[in-house]
Design a protein around this nucleic acid. Sequence first.
DNA 1: CCCAAATATTGGCAACCAATTATATTGCTG
DNA 2: CAGCAATATAATTGGTTGCCAATATTTGGG
Lengths: 116, 116
Amino acid sequence: MDPRTELVFDKIAERLRSLADPMRLAILHLLQRGPMRVTDILAEVGGSQANVSKHLGILRQAGFVTCRREGVNVYYAVADETVFTICRAICEGIEKAAEQEREAIAQARALLETGR
Amino acid sequence: MDPRTELVFDKIAERLRSLADPMRLAILHLLQRGPMRVTDILAEVGGSQANVSKHLGILRQAGFVTCRREGVNVYYAVADETVFTICRAICEGIEKAAEQEREAIAQARALLETGR
DNA sequence: CCCAAATATTGGCAACCAATTATATTGCTG
DNA sequence: CAGCAATATAATTGGTTGCCAATATTTGGG
């Protein structure tokens, strides 16, 4: 495969990995309402301070959020709205998968009924 | 946090993880052209047969692809077009991030020039 | 029925990731 | 500048993931 193409896949995968964590998704969801201090994020998502800070660091390094210091507080904000596009697409996918599963179950049941 | 919301984030994260691998992305990219046999996928993406098979299994389990047997061959096909929406969004994000970085570098350089 | 080709599965190992605990940094206030 | 509150950064550890090698399964052909 073209090595440049391979690099692109590496980058996409890296970005997806930065996103693929429930707590990080929760944080992004929170920040959708507007910038927040770490303390407040912490209060909402729960977990240890160190952990939340680390997740914020990962999101920041990936460029999904930015932060700005105001005195003793640090405010985080969404820097890349495309994450929400991604989440919507994923959710669509989940809904489709659920529907397919429902259909499969219905078929299986029909099969059982027939065989009675 | 609402436990139901938490479950949603778990599901999204799980799905993202299934997607967050260069080889799996390469496979999906290949399959965009149409259904393919495992052997042909193998020839294009490289790597061991076992590895490709495992990645295909992960994609299948996540519902991103389906497979159908035809004699001795198994054809895989994209089952969920939303993955491409996701990839496009991610790519947009990468482009934005790159541009921001370029700007930051330009600013830093300007600062250095000024200080001469 | 046995062989060969296509595909899947398993076991082991190294790399990576996430959570925790402890420690460091930063900025305000008295 | 001492001390506190907010945040970030190690260091450790248990669990997960990816890769490889070997083995098993499935299917068509002789």
